[in-house]
Amino acid sequence: MHVPDGFFNAAVSGSAGAVAAAGVAVCLRGARRELDDRTAPMAGLVAAFIFAVQMLNFPVAAGTSGHLLGGALAAILVGPYTGVLCMAVVLLVQGVFFADGGLTALGINVTIMGIVTVLVGWGVFRLVTQLVRGKGGVTAAAFLASLISVPAAALAFTLLFWIGGTAPIEVSAVAVAMGGVHVLIGVGEGLITAFTVGAVLAVRPDLVYGARGLASSLVLRGPDGATTVEPAARPATAGHGLRPFLLGGVGLTLLLAGVVSFFASSSPDGLEAVAENKGFIDQATEHLMSWSPLGDYGEVGGIPVGVAGVIGVGIVLLVAGAVGYAARTRGQAAAGDDKIKV
């Protein structure tokens, strides 16, 4: 999904650059709360790990392979703010050192693969861990969070493409192709994230940011045989809920909306053309399907690709609703806490 130079027009590249820079700036501030003296190395390791697992291409369907995005994993392991920083570093290093992803498209890449995946991933994760407690809840939440974060990123890509892609392709065709492939990638990513988080949780629960607060009591036994039980020192839990992320998401949406309206007004034919070329849509979709490796089969695991795309979009909408719901209940819970304290 790494976008090269010249793929999006200057306005979108620039706006996405601004969004990415603002997002990273917010996260640099926020990361201070998440990190102790182990933070930078842990974040570096997570970045390196995500870099490595992005190389670990796994087969999606005959002939094609996808790679993880890793945003949800980063958010769960080191917290959302540091997670965004990890993703930004991965993309920066890939762009500068490996020429993977254009330098002028860095803002787009960070926005789509860094901010959107972390935002959606962390939102889903918090929501599920609030519903299902314990280690099982954390693992399940990790699976769902990354499963959903990947098509969400594909959707963000499609949205940006619709606003300012330089290629004259039907946005619906892009949506179907991106959505379909990325729902499948999302399943793979969900499994890998769940297994990774599960494995880390089993061996080193202290390393999983999203599982802070699960620590059990320590039993300290003296040499004289006397046994004392001491509660584990509970680290400050990730108490800064979803609000900053919601605000970030709203800001992002507003910014994008602003760019859309700018384009809508400056080149109305661009959008109208979509309607006019209705006849082309079918043709374009057909071509895209026949190109897509999935097209040869028409279905993957019994799910027609078109349906997969629709599912992807549906899931994202569901998530948006769920995040909103979570924010509301959290807000109420926080209000409740305040009352108890007072």
Binding site: G44, L56, P59, L191, F195, T196, A199, V203
Partner: peptide, 29 residues
């Protein structure tokens, strides 16, 4: 690794990979 059915194996090794690298990286740190 040839098709989707092998995914759980790949996923499990990703978990092991993280722990192994972390514990090595942790010592450096």
């Amino acid at each position: 690794a040839r098709d989707v059915r092998q995914l759980p194996a790949v996923a499990r090794s990703a978990g092991a990979l993280f722990i192994r690298s972390y514990e090595r990286g942790e010592r450096v740190h």
